[in-house]
Structures are given as structure tokens and as C-alpha cells.
Nucleic acid binder design. Sequence first.
DNA 1: TCATAATGTGACCGCCTGGTCATATTATGG
DNA 2: CCATAATATGACCAGGCGGTCACATTATGA
Lengths: 221, 221
Amino acid sequence: MDTLLAQPKQTFVNLPREKRENVVRAAVIEFAEHGYQRASLNNIVKRLGISKGSLYQYFDNKEALFLHVFDHFTQQVKQHVKASVAGNGQDDFFAVARQVLLAGITFIDNHPEYFQVYLKVLFERDVPRREELVARVRLFSLEYFGPLADRAVGQGILREDISAHKVVFILDAMLDRFLQGYAQPYLDGGLALAGMSPERLHNEIDSIVAVLRTGLQPNRQ
Amino acid sequence: MDTLLAQPKQTFVNLPREKRENVVRAAVIEFAEHGYQRASLNNIVKRLGISKGSLYQYFDNKEALFLHVFDHFTQQVKQHVKASVAGNGQDDFFAVARQVLLAGITFIDNHPEYFQVYLKVLFERDVPRREELVARVRLFSLEYFGPLADRAVGQGILREDISAHKVVFILDAMLDRFLQGYAQPYLDGGLALAGMSPERLHNEIDSIVAVLRTGLQPNRQ
DNA sequence: TCATAATGTGACCGCCTGGTCATATTATGG
DNA sequence: CCATAATATGACCAGGCGGTCACATTATGA
């Protein structure tokens, strides 16, 4: 799970850090704009002001460059989420969900292009090792919420007529959809999430978490 | 809203129905597999066994062909949903939601390629008139559930601390995500929706609707 | 200083794309 | 039957793609 998807060539590793970062940044932008297949290596080298031959001294081919970019993405998102939730370890199930949602928002704010790359991978065919890439992100969510949901079931926090599996699905669906709406305004169903002030955004999140809490906790009728 | 996005040329209209349907079918398959930009007109004419010149006698260009395909999609989905819900007009808010979800499932079963085209449009940049296309589908959902939610609020069926707008967002998010998971198995969070028997699928749907009902109805604590 | 290794370069290759157009084929109706 | 209109064809075009490679430039260390 934590093994790398692809190694750059030694030449790339030897490069000064700033140049390496430039290359990755330019590649991320191109893949974010056009997805994998339509992304153009010619555009990338043009943007960087280097020759195409150089890029091929850094990576074996387009696929290796792309996988390297995706590696960066997964590393950053995991690190960001874990750091965001770290301080609130003892909170209840839904408070953690809220925290993860907020972490997603700030990640998108900080790295909108990386999230675009992910969205592209979700819905583009012929992306190399697509299932594996998506699974890396998805499994992170499942691994993260799965045990929490199991524990919550044990504590009687969740209603018993729905499996922990399904709880995670519902939670994941809401989080994912909310973040998609935040990243792509025309997906937000008229909520205008994109331009929203942080306070109102927090209100929206609280509303949704409240609905999930009421819907998922044991029945009190 | 109901005006067409693009007209084919007269030559296409004059064609016998079967040939017209063949052309549209081949185009749908190609756009479903590769999205707009990567779809190849050469592939389409090869699959049809006609010359490229002929295709250009039917449509002005790639964009016109694509928009014609999307017109077909929206017409079919609207017709299908309306027909599915028609008999159950007097049901309550959540029963209608359940019915729409079921209609979505059967639509995907009947026309998986059309739904793929829609998913591609959602996440591909540079699709001609993308916002407009997405809006056509989205607005249908909003127009459909919006009035229902308003009425439900008036009847006191929905909790009062959340706007009808937000209710529609949550509902739409769950429906959309469920259908995405059904159409693209690696999006289903391990629920294995794709290969599921109809009975178990209905159980899943009922569970989710139950959670929404409990979460969205007035608080009874 | 100079031989060797590492790195950078861009013209070039074969392939595919959306789109064009002169020409061939077929249908129509007087 | 034949002139005209409608339809079908595929070679061809310019442009972009991923990828290659012979060569130029720079860095290294003895």
C-alpha cells in the first residue's frame, strides 16, 4: 500500500530539489487540465523551458511520469488528513467525520490541481493502473473509517439494522460528493459551495453531519 | 430546456430509421469509451462500415454529432424517470426518492453506455458546452425534487433546521453516488453493487432511504 | 589539463486526429 | 431513358502526439 508506483530515473533523483519540484508541478498542472491521455508531454516541456529529451532522461515514459505525480498526491493527502485529525483523536465517530471533511476542504484549497488529477482518474478510461490508483485513495477512506465504524457499532453509537460497511459507504458518499461539489462548482446542486465564506461552509458541513448523525444513530422512537 | 442542442443535417434526417439508430449507437459507444476529446470519428465510421465523408454529410462536425448523442441521452432519461414514477404519484417524499433511485438503476441496466457518456462529461475538460450539458441533467433533478421538498416542508415531513435546498443536495448526492457506484464498480466502496441480485439491491436502497428518512425527518427526541 | 561521464538538445519518426473535396454511385421524376 | 439531384467514397491535408537518437554541452576528478 505504501510502496511507490513508479521510480524516476537516477538522473531525476540527482537533480536539485527546486528543478525536481518544477517538473512535478508542471506535470500536475497538465494532467489536472487534460487527464492522462490528452495530457501533452510537449506542453509540459514547453512550460518548463526544457527539451523533450531531458524529460525522457528523467522518466522512462509518460506513464512513469504520471505515476510519480500520483504517488505525490496520495502521500500528500494522507499526510494532510492524518495531521488534521491527529489532535482530535478521542472525539466521537461523527466528529471525526466532520474533521475529515474539513481536511478535505483545506487540501483542495491548498492543492486544487492534485484533486483535479484524482477526479480525472476516476472517470477516464485507459488510465494506466486506474483501479489500483483509485483503490489507493478509496482504501485509505475505508481503512480509516472502517475500524472507527466497527468501534462505534460496539459502543452502540450506530443503529443496528445497518452494517458498518453500509455506514462507511454512506459516510464516504457524502464526504466525496461534498468535496466534488466544492472542487467542481457545477456539481454542487446549487449550494454555491465554491465561493462560500469559511463560516458558512462550516455551517453547511455541520448540517450535513447532523443529518448523518440523526440518520445513523440508534432509533429513539 | 427542452430545445435541442444541435441539429443533424437534412441528409441524416432523410436516412432510414435503422441506419440513423446504427449511427447514434456507434457514436454513443465511442463517446462512452473515450469521452469527447479522445473519441475518434475514424473508429466510429470503421465500426459502422461507412466512409468518413458520409458522417460529415450527416453532421457538421464532431461537436454536432456529440450534442445530438447527448440530446438523445437527456430525452431518454427524463422519459424513463417520469414513466417509472408516474404510477406512484401520491407517495410521500422518500418513497418518491426510492422510486427515482430504482429508475436510475434500471436506466443504467438498459443503457449503460449512455450513463458512461454522462460520467465522462462530468469530469472531462473541454467538452463543448459542458456546463450546459451537466446543467440539463442536474436541473432535472433539482426541478424534480425541489417542489417535492418544498411541499414536504409545508407538510412538516422534513426537519426545520435544514433548508429544502440542502435536503435536495443531500438526496441528490446519495442518489448520484449510489448510481455512480452501480455503474463503476470501483466507486462503490466495497458494497459490490454491480453484481448484486435485484432483491439485495432493493435492500441496499431501502437501507439508504431509511437512513435519509430518519436523518431528514423532524427530530423526535 | 584533459579524458570520461553525466546531462541537455531538438530534429526526426511513425502514427493518429478532425476535417476537406473531387469524384463515383445511386435515386428521382419528367 | 436520361438529366439532375442526392448520397457515398476515401485519398489527402495540416497538425499534434509519444518516443528516439546522434550530437552538443557541462561537470567531474585524476
